[in-house]
């Protein structure tokens, strides 16, 4: 069974209880940042801060409002972090759809940061390993819902079977449309095969306004490296090795006795 989180951004009141629950459950120290005049706790995710409520300012018809969004790992079906990771066993896709980081196997190269189209993983400067939301794999394994879901006071956050939540999301989007939000819809980007974190957005055609990428895909340079380039490299390596070997077998080494001297018009001595 694939599990998912559903975030109904229209119900978020920006209380940040989920941020606190995430820090508490995962036993993360809070690092003070710089205050940049925003209600947002931090400008970005950090190695020890995996769940960020974004207060996106939105202007329409002269009025400013907030488009709330909860930012964390999206647990992609086709995960860019996993595609880019060179260390077997460091990023593990679980049977329930969670993309889990296993730190014993992490080598700290940071390729997952580059592979992730959502720019989610972060390196810890001390341990030199990459961290991000685990979808509370240590809770879901024993049948509990993730800490953020558990704590949300408004039912903005839901957790459960992905198919059911997708259905719920469509229903909610339909209700919003009926309420006059013609652009309402579900964020479930297909470029990464769909995500296990789903959003209901009032302005679904403009996810950038929520700080979400519009058409996230695994970066083509990562696909190039993991795909065609791998073939090319293997071919060139063995081609050269066998080429050299058979050159030797056919022609043998260079031999001044047998092979004559290079032409040199001035060297007729």
């Amino acid at each position: 069974m694939i599990v998912a989180k559903l975030i109904d951004t229209t119900l978020c009141i920006g209380c940040k209880a989920c941020e606190v629950a995430c820090q508490e459950w995962n036993d993360q120290e809070y690092t003070m940042g710089t205050f940049d005049g925003s209600y947002q706790t931090k400008p970005e995710l950090e190695a020890n801060f995996w769940n960020l409520i974004k207060f996106n300012e939105f202007e329409k018809d002269g009025a400013t409002s907030w488009l709330m969004s909860k930012y964390q790992c999206m647990h992609c079906a086709d995960a860019g972090c996993l595609a880019a990771c060179p260390a077997p066993g460091a990023i593990v896709p679980l049977a329930n759809g969670t993309i889990d980081f296993v730190h014993e196997n992490c080598i700290g190269c940071g390729y997952c940061i580059t592979g992730c189209p959502f720019d989610v993983p972060r390196l810890n400067a001390t341990t030199k390993k990459a961290y991000k939301c685990t979808l509370c794999s240590d809770r879901t394994a024993v049948g509990l819902e993730p800490a953020c879901i558990k704590t949300c006071p408004t039912n903005c956050l839901n957790f459960g079977e992905r198919d059911e939540l997708l259905h719920l999301a469509e229903t909610r989007a339909g209700e919003l449309k009926a309420d006059g939000f013609a652009d309402a819809g579900v964020y479930n980007p297909q470029g990464v095969g769909g995500t296990n974190v789903l959003y209901v957005l009032k302005h679904a055609s403009e996810p950038e306004k929520y700080g979400l990428p519009k058409d996230p895909v695994i970066p083509w340079t990562v696909s190039l490296w993991k795909g065609p380039m791998k073939w090319m490299g293997t071919l060139m390596f063995w081609g050269t090795v066998f080429g050299a070997f058979f050159h030797f077998v056919i022609y043998g080494p260079q031999d001044p006795e047998k092979h004559g001297h290079p032409e040199d018009p001035s060297d007729k001595s």
Binding site: A84, C109, G110, Y111, I113, T114, G115, D119, R122, L123, A125, P219, T221, V222, L224, W225, M229, G233
Partner: peptide, 18 residues
């Protein structure tokens, strides 16, 4: 990777093995 702009990292991740 933490200090480098994403665009440079994306180029390098293919350019280095190439």
């Amino acid at each position: 990777p933490e200090w480098m702009p994403r665009s440079l990292r994306l180029i390098s991740i293919a350019a280095h093995p190439l």
